[in-house]
Amino acid sequence: MKNVGETRETPAGAPQEEFATGERSTRNRVARSILDHGPSTVAELAGRLGLTQAAVRRHLDALVADNVVQPREQRVYGARTRGRPAKVFALTDCGRDAFDQSYDKLAMDALRWIAEHGGGDEAVVAFARARIAAQARAYRAAIEGAAPEERTEALAKALSADGYAAMARSAPPPHRGEQLCQHHCPVAHVAEQFPQLCEAETEVFSQLLGTHVQRLATIAHGDGVCTTFIPKAPPQDAGAPHTAGRAAPAPTAPKTSKTTHNASASTAGRNPA
């Protein structure tokens, strides 16, 4: 599980780092106990963890502030006794996500089953395209509301809203164009096994921006950032009509990139030997 919460105060004489580590460890134990045993009262947590109720309340306050747990009234089955029902603390969706989940394995198992029983690679490609097409509706609306020179930035903002931590920046000289950089990929582990997800995404970027785009790097194949090059149309030159409308050459990928800089929409996400 990821560490949850932060230290808010340090008792006198306790080294800051040592105290903070102990606080996080105990807080994780409190959250883990709720995960293992379900919604729990302060008294139940204190008994299971060997802590005082005051200490449990302090950790619960921090976990509530961090949206890891939430208080609720305890459900009573049968006849109610006198007095207010005891308050229990349950994990939020955010709190559950802080623990290791098997979503990646489930997704890979599902795609592998589709490939083996539902039509091979073509079925996986169809799934990948349908998945990104559903996301692309919001992206298209954002792009259509932006000026032509601001469309890459609009796409980056729309991607960030979906958790991709994206940004747009100018491509390094002498290349004419922009780079769309995604610093996070929610499906990187699955895309490592099924590059069709990256390929479908690249195709959609091309469709949304109305130009050929080139994938330079992907997190799924060991690069630090997913980087896509969006060329800028060259100026019209009456003396050289044969070059009009052609995409500008792609810049080379960052030095840390393992992905070929020549990747097109048909090979995006793959990591050639």
Rank of each mutant, 00 (worst) to 15 (best):
V88C: 02
F89C: 11
A90F: 07
L91M: 09
L91K: 03
T92L: 04
T92M: 03
T92Y: 02
D93F: 04
D93Q: 09
C94M: 12
D97P: 00
D97G: 05
A98I: 07
A98H: 12
F99T: 09
F99Q: 08
Q101A: 09
Q101Y: 01
Q101D: 11
Y103G: 06
K105F: 01
L106Q: 09
M108S: 11
M108C: 14
M108P: 05
D109G: 10
D109M: 04
D109T: 08
L111H: 09
R112N: 15
W113A: 15
A115G: 11
E116G: 07
E116N: 09
E116T: 06
H117T: 06
H117M: 02
G118K: 04
G118L: 00
G118H: 07
G119P: 12
G119H: 09
G120T: 01
D121F: 07
E122S: 07
A123Y: 13
A123R: 03
A123M: 04
A123E: 04
V124P: 15
V124Q: 08
V124D: 10
V125Y: 13
A126G: 10
A126H: 12
A126P: 11
A128V: 04
R129L: 13
R129F: 14
R131L: 14
R131C: 06
R131Q: 13
I132P: 13
A134W: 15
A134M: 11
A136V: 01
R137T: 07
A138H: 13
R140L: 07
A141E: 15
I143S: 14
I143T: 06
E144G: 14
A146R: 12
A146W: 02
A147D: 13
P148A: 04
P148K: 13
E149T: 15
E149Q: 15
E150W: 00
E150S: 13
R151E: 08
R151A: 05
T152M: 04
E153F: 02
A154V: 02
L155T: 02
K157N: 14
A158Y: 11
L159S: 06
L159G: 09
S160N: 08
S160G: 13
A161I: 03
A161Q: 15
A161C: 06
A161W: 09
A161L: 12
D162E: 15
D162G: 04
G163Y: 12
G163K: 06
G163L: 11
Y164A: 09
A166E: 10
A166P: 02
M167W: 01
M167D: 10
A168H: 04
A168W: 03
R169G: 07
R169A: 11
R169E: 15
S170W: 05
A171I: 00
A171H: 01
P172I: 00
P173G: 00
H175S: 08
E178I: 00
Q179R: 08
Q179K: 03
C181W: 04
H183V: 00
H183F: 03
H184F: 07
H184V: 07
C185P: 01
C185V: 01
P186S: 10
V187D: 05
H189L: 13
H189I: 01
V190E: 02
A191S: 10
A191T: 03
E192C: 13
E192A: 14
F194Q: 01
P195K: 00
Q196M: 11
Q196G: 07
Q196F: 08
Q196Y: 11
Q196T: 06
